[in-house]
Amino acid sequence: MTNELPQVFWLFSIGAILLLITGFYCLIMTYNLVRALIGLEILTKSVTLFIILAGYVTGRMALAQALAITLIIIEVVVIAVAVGIVLCVYKNIKSIDGRLLRNIKG
């Protein structure tokens, strides 16, 4: 068990890093507002996995779980609000394509 620990850690770290790449790729390439939120979700999943891993490896499972649970709750609120905004956008312009939202130049 203890011998396997670094391997398990590194394996799932790779998984989490690949999730990060996927999420950022999605965020950069997409114009669809909902899909951007899905990209964010993937990023958050990756971070959750990182926190759980950190807790597992250092033996502070309880703290890591407490943090992960809090994180999940905050994530769902943010997504709910974001979806609300997307729906309002849809109501106004009948589309969820981000390219149509270029009234404000950043």
């Binding site: 068990m1 203890t2 620990l5 670094p6 597992y56 250092t58 033996g59 502070r60 499972m61 309880a62």
Partner: peptide
């Protein structure tokens, strides 16, 4: 860094 999967405290 020290890796130890000790039982949670």
């Amino acid at each position: 860094f020290h890796l130890q999967a000790a039982p949670s405290e």
